[in-house]
Amino acid sequence: MAARKTFARFFLHFVIIISLIIWIVPTLGLLITSFRPAEDVNSTGWWTVFSSPLDFTNYTLDNYLQVIRAGGMNTAFKNSFIITIFGTLLPVLIAAFAAFGLSRLNFKGRSFIYALIVSLLVVPLQLTFIPILKLYNILNLSGTFTGLWLDHTAYGLPLAVYMLHNFFQSLPDDLFEAAFIDGASIWIAFVRLALPLSMPALASLFIFQFLWVWNDLLVALIYLGGSGQVAPLTMRLTNLVGSHGQDWHLLTSAAFVSMIVPLIIFFSLQRYFVKGILAGSVKG
């Protein structure tokens, strides 16, 4: 019995490790390529460095220096931050209110509104470009950060509401009953009870939305128009490459430069995933 268990375990680990390796190979290739000189990138594959991995003439920081020194990179970083921070906070905040209302308050048409919001999940983004841009031209919102925040909020809301609604629904009813008996208003129940308890859900939602907005190129291109003043990092990075794909090797280092921020966000919020805040909250 014990031997079989060990074997099953070994097999499981084996499968996990193999799939991990398969999963990580492209990223590893990208990382190695980003440190190789342009000529090498164009003449041989990244795996050739393994024949002499300690030969440091194989590596260079040029690609990174070129990306970082490219004109307008500071503005692009700043723009990306401005866009992403509000493009993430707004939908998460609004979704939290909406999801709480939809899951914990009783009012007529509740499930209809919820179904309507969730059904918006299937509307393709591209379908909305022209009508919204027309509206923005009337409202003078095209080419502004505000317009883009509203876009990202709107595009992010259906999924956010859906996720948080499910999470709030899973919170024990007893908890809220107890709170109301103790005299808590709905507002207090939301701020003091629901929000802290749903930290893991909020954090994962935050990360999802952050990644989506940070990596977005299309929406920004359509609504901001791509001029240097307001262009986010993604737009600046695609402009490093020529119209026929020249200098594509710069994209490898550019990918890692733009990856830094999402990685910081991910690792700093990771503990919220792990923490089981809910555990023990209904005891006693």
Binding site: F129, I130, L133, K134, Y136, N137, S142, L221, I222, G225, G226, S227, G228, Q229, M235, T238, N239, V241, S243
Partner: peptide, 20 residues
């Protein structure tokens, strides 16, 4: 202001349609 995009026809059509 230069607006660079590799996807010119798509973006252009959208912007023209939207009157911008």
């Amino acid at each position: 202001e230069f607006e660079g995009t590799r996807d010119l026809p798509t973006l252009l059509t959208t912007r023209i349609e939207a009157g911008n």
